[in-house]
Nucleic acid binder design. Structure first.
Lengths: 243, 243
DNA sequence: GAGTGGTCTAGACCACAAA
DNA sequence: TTGTGGTCTAGACCACTCC
């Protein structure tokens, strides 16, 4: 039987939640893994079942865990790469949504611009990996992306042959560089297409374009990647509920 | 001591949550009211405190109630009229957000168009109240709105003198017609400004415009109002978190 | 001090999944 | 059959608000 770490003024269920969250951050528990059962945890830490349950409730609420009756509690697999594209409606002939193909146009190492350094919480002028990428749907370009990564933790990614990089980057970040994306913050604005963007997206210069800035973060809430995506506004729809 | 209504195969805490939610729907409990205390409910229905607590958890999660330690559990006051304007950034000279003034340009009774009938879940051709409204910030028009209400429940609103209608409509719907807005669903798209909209917003025809369609709903989830708002896209920013 | 919600205990029994 | 999470009981004590 172990004691729980942390400030004793913090509620027990919070400290247990912190402990479990920490093992997701360190990678001791990976997405898809089953967390220790409620019985195990209440024995291990000498807690009442209800207290353990409340700790798991906290993590389920944060989207870190998900529960399945009869099976167990599992680390949730964050699968939001489709989520940006939920903003755009790219459907195949069958009406189902498609993940667009992608083409990396450019990948270089250079100092990161100021606004990216701020977003990634590194000091000004830190070397970064800069990428341009074009996402295609049925041969038509639909989204143009600029992507920035801090160079040091992603040196291995910088040296990878382009052919080994598929349509989804986050699994590569995890596999090759041990950086797991758990969440992202996005900001959306509208602008008129520059000549460069108009050429890439094959639209008229000045036509309205949706701009989505994304900062991808890990379970530890530290920024991993900065990304700016532009798509034609006439392909765009977004729904939400407010109260 | 009372028995809980509802199908006995449904968990007790769900049936209690349903009962309490129902008293918000009927208006027995109004926003700002204090709900019965946990002790009262566990006595009243002969339930364990933990079961009552879980029922309240459900309603807090739905945004119907909010809890304050030492004070009680209260019906949450839905205050999202500011929420559309979180999309637009209208700040005063002090940097604080402002609720724009508003001017009703038109208010008429006519049959509702098909798409509005669908949204409000009434049969085709039902008489409605149609309004055009312009929202201003420091003398500049910022948002143009079309609003539709079903006439029958809002007859009293249709006859109100324009001077009695302030900048916020939902409190008027509640006070004059007993229709309480609890939530809303919004869909956002981008279009080029028509000549009419360009004139109202004082922008160039063809300039990008954000369109937000909103269906406002009651606690019973029934639609109350349909609204389409248009604002200049260069005033627009929207943030979200995804996982 | 009385009343409220917040935390925690120590179980019981049920529903569901997998072997 | 075993192990998992889901529901429910019946309390205790604490923290906070208000009178």
């Amino acid at each position: 039987m172990h004691a729980l770490a942390g400030d004793e003024r913090i509620p027990i269920y919070q400290r247990l939640a912190d402990t479990l969250r920490q093992s997701v951050i360190t990678g001791a528990l990976k997405p898809g893994d089953r967390a220790p059962s409620e019985n195990f945890l209440s024995d291990e830490y000498g807690l009442a079942p209800g207290t353990v349950r409340k700790a798991l409730d906290v993590l389920v609420g944060e989207g870190v865990f998900e529960r399945f009756q009869g099976k167990g509690t599992f680390v949730r697999r964050p699968s939001f790469d489709a989520s940006l594209f939920r903003f755009f409606r790219f459907r195949g002939p069958d009406g189902e949504f498609r993940v667009p193909e992608s083409r990396i146009l450019r990948r270089e190492i250079e100092p990161m611009p100021g606004h990216v350094c701020v977003a990634l919480e590194v000091s000004k002028g830190t070397p970064g990996i800069s990428m341009s990428r074009l996402r295609m749907h049925e041969g038509t370009p639909v989204v143009a992306e600029e992507i920035w990564l801090e160079h040091a933790p992603f040196a291995k990614f910088a040296d990878m042959p382009a052919e080994e990089i598929g349509a989804l980057l986050y699994p590569v970040y995890d596999r090759e560089c041990g950086r797991l994306v758990a969440r992202a913050e996005e900001t959306m604005t509208v602008e008129a297409a520059s000549r460069e963007i108009a050429r890439l997206l094959r639209i008229d210069a000045g036509a309205p374009v949706i701009v989505i800035d994304r900062i991808a973060k890990g379970y530890d809430n530290k920024p991993i990647e900065w990304r700016r995506s532009r798509g034609r506004a006439d392909q765009f729809t977004y729904q939400t509920e407010i109260r």
